[in-house]
Each structure stands twice: as C-alpha cells, then as structure tokens.
Design a protein around this nucleic acid. Structure first.
Lengths: 238, 238
DNA sequence: CGAGCACGCTTGGAGCCCCAACTTTGCGAC
DNA sequence: GTCGCAAAGTTGGGGCTCCAAGCGTGCTCG
C-alpha cells in the first residue's frame, strides 16, 4: 500500500493475491525471474527474493530448469516443530532436549490398515514393518504414542533403531521431499487408553504423518497424544 | 555432511547445532555477516543467506544496527495458516476463500478472565472490548467460535468490523511483530456446547492466540473448534 | 563531570553478474 | 513419422557492491 515499503513486497503481494483469488489456479506457472523484472520493473534480486518468499510460504514451488508453479497441496508447518509443555514448567524444552524415554517395539505384522492408511502408504502389505514408540514425560506418564509403517527394505534392526528416518533414508539414496500431516481430535481406542493410561472421557489428538520422497510415500505414522497432557505453543515473527 | 552441498548450509547447520546444544544460549549474539565470511571462508551472499534461513526458522532474530541474536521464545507456525477440511470434499479452500458466514457480536462487558488471560492481555479491564464471531461450515454447522479481547482505543464499530486486526492496528501506527498461540484439547464449557451445537462427549480444540506489538499484547483471542468437525492438513517442503 | 555528537559497525533492501544443472522446445536427420 | 540432439530458457548457488537506517561506543566540548 505505502509506496515506501520494499519493492519485492509489491511483487509478493500481487502474486499472492492472484493465487488467493484464483487468477492463478494450482499448477499455473509463475512468471520467471526475467519476466518478473520486466513486468514489475524491478531488479533481479527483488524478483528472486519475491519468489523465494512465496516458496517459503509454500504457495509456489520452484522446479529447476522449468519454472515456479502454484502448489496444489496447501502447505503449512508440520507438527515436528511443535514443542511440548511439560508442565508445571512453562516452555519446557522440545522433544530433542527434553528428558525423554523412548521405547521401541519392533514387530512386523500385518497392519489392520483402513483404506486411509492404504492411500497414505501404497506399499505391499507383506513388506510393511510396524514400529511403535512411546515418549514419556518426566513424571513417568506417557506423553505420546506413535506407530510407524515403512517398507521392509528400509527398515533395519539393531543399533540402527535410533537413527532418524531421514538419516536412514539418506543411506539408501532417498531424499525426503515433503512431510504431510493431518490432525484431528477423537475418542481414544481401547488399546490406546491402555497404553497411554488415559482416564475416562479424555480425548486424544491424532496426527497422521506421511513422509514423501517425490510422489512415493516412504514412511507413514500415527501419532496419538492425550488431550489432557499436551499443550503446544508456538509463535511466529512477522 | 557431504562436501558437495551448498556452503551456506554448512554455516546454517553449524550455528543451528550451537543453538540446540546450548553453546549459543537465548539472547547470545550471532557473528555478523562480515565475521561469518571470515570465520567460514564464504562469500557475503552465503553468510547473508545462512542468517536469513535461521531467521526464517525463528531460531535467531536480526536487529538493524545491532546484530543477530538467538531468540528467547520458541517459534513455530501459527494456526492461521491451517486450512480446514470442509468434508466431504478433501482439501477445501482455506478460511479466506471458503464460503463462510461470519457473525459479529460486539459487546464491551467485563470479561470473566482467569489469571491466564490476565497475563496474556495486560490491559485495564474497563478498557477491554469483547468481540465474538463464528465461522460456519457450508451445511450450516458452526465450525469455529472465537472471542477476542482488545483495548477500547483500537476497537472501532460500524463498517470497520470486517477490517483485519493488522490493518486496523496499522492505522494506529502499531506494527504487530509476533503471534503466539497455545493449543490444547479440552471438554467444552456449557456455553460453548450451546453455541457450537455440540453433541455430548465431543471435545474441542482450544487455541489461545495473542498478537504482540513488541513486548505489548495488543489483542488476544480464544478460538474454540469442535473436535469432530475439524481436521487440519498441512505439508512442508524440505 | 556530564551531555551530545560523530564515527564505526550492523542489518536489510536492491542491483548486477557468472555458472552449473536441468527442462523444454524445436529443428533436422533418418 | 519418429528419433535424437542442440539451443534457449529456468532455477538455485554464489560472488561483489552500494546505500539507508539504526545502534553503540567513545571522545570532545562545555
């Protein structure tokens, strides 16, 4: 609005507007750097920066050698950046540094997968491996229960357990390009009530997370968090 | 790890590691652009880009004329980037474009604020204005109930209702620098059950959002979403 | 001794350039 | 008509520079 604010913002706001009002539908190409410099009469740095900002917001995606395109999937920040509040202390450290005990439970058995899971992980049922792990709070109460499914060939036993999925995939030459998460609250299943020591009437937050390598799902997990034991907090600089 | 990947990543990863393991505690200064170029033997562009990436992640904050510092508050992505799935259609548009009906309900009455709200909004109770608005789904069911509190002087009536908080604040010369949100699930209160037409046993997602202008809270709101009617989905490009 | 000013440093915006890797397109040969 | 290759265009990494605005320190002057 003000003519004084950065020129790259003019470009960002104009393109963002076009995406929001449908002028640029999902998949539509964004003008290239060279075209933007001519169209908006700005330098290459400004055009480039505008594209980077929009890509950072997840509105567009850049493909080398091809161009920038409006993203089809809405992009938002994933749960793995959430931090858990280990009350009473506010702003307890995140899962990385938090004094957590992780229990790994390896078993490769047929997953009672609904159609939803099948869509998320299009991998042969026999080659699927199920792994369950828990995260405990300081006072011993379980804070999170996660079940992950991944193809057998990637799954390794023994000491490798603790290596992160990204690291293990990297060894196979597979680069994870995207993490998609779906979140909702629901009533806990009997097994979950047991595992998480839930009191009657407590609901859970259910996160379905899928790691993608290109258009191929490489790992998917169900994360269940007790509704009375979690509280996430996050802030955003503007 | 690989020597082939971008040099700016070397800088990013090294600083990120130092922040995570506590070598650089909150508030600690990050080396300046000039210092980084010398320390890591990289160009200014790489140093600058590394700082931008870290700032984008919310790990550090740049202060013009002073330097970059490790952020004290953990920064994560706010709910306002979430998109609601208006089922049955998957990936329905977000709140901006979604066919929503917003009902505004202005009333300036003393808020039955607990100590939590008081901390969030350190403003005189008499000069506080309460505004409630609903967002409805296509089928008429309420999807969200939000109650916001802001100082009287900023609140205006009439047509201004629909102008966003950021726009209104802008007119007062106040720039919102940060949005902090706290999320958890809980049992709905009687009034909420009524307003949201909740069935028995349904829990709600409760978001406490506060807008900050520097270290001054300028607006705070309670957003309540029925647990059976929402499902957020988001993805993150890596 | 204290107030104020000037200088040096830092960020963030902006411009221009070079290059590697990759995609797309179009042309020419078979 | 189809295959293959070359040229043109595009992204993303990286480099260099200039400048305005803002912060801090220290020195000078009253």
């Amino acid at each position: 609005m003000a003519t004084s604010d950065p020129v790259y913002l003019r470009v960002v706001e104009d393109i963002r507007r076009q995406i929001n009002d449908g002028t640029l539908p999902p998949g539509a190409p964004i003008p290239s750097r060279a075209q933007l410099t001519r169209k908006y009469q700005v330098g290459e740095t400004a055009a480039r920066h505008a594209l980077r900002v929009l890509a950072g917001e997840g509105l567009i995606i850049g493909r080398v050698g091809s161009g920038h395109y409006v993203r089809d999937r809405p992009v938002l920040a994933p749960l793995h950046r959430w931090r858990f509040l280990d009350h009473p202390a506010p702003f307890a450290a995140d899962l990385q540094s938090q004094g957590r005990r992780v229990t790994w439970d390896w078993h490769s058995e047929p997953v009672e997968a609904g159609p939803e899971l099948g869509r998320r992980l299009r991998i042969d049922a026999s080659t699927r491996l199920t792994r369950t792990h828990y995260i405990f709070r300081g006072d011993g109460k379980p804070l999170q229960l996660a079940t992950s499914y991944e193809p057998m060939d990637f799954a390794t036993h023994g000491d490798e357990e603790r290596r992160s999925l990204i690291t293990r995939m990297y060894a196979f030459g597979i680069k994870i390009t995207e993490i998609v998460e779906s979140v909702h609250t629901r009533v806990p299943r009997p097994a979950e009530m047991d595992a998480l020591q839930l009191a009657a009437g407590v609901h859970v937050l259910h996160v379905e997370r899928t790691h993608w390598a290109g258009d191929r799902p490489v790992e998917t997990s169900d994360i269940v968090i007790p509704g009375d034991r979690f509280r996430v907090m996050y802030s955003m600089p503007l």
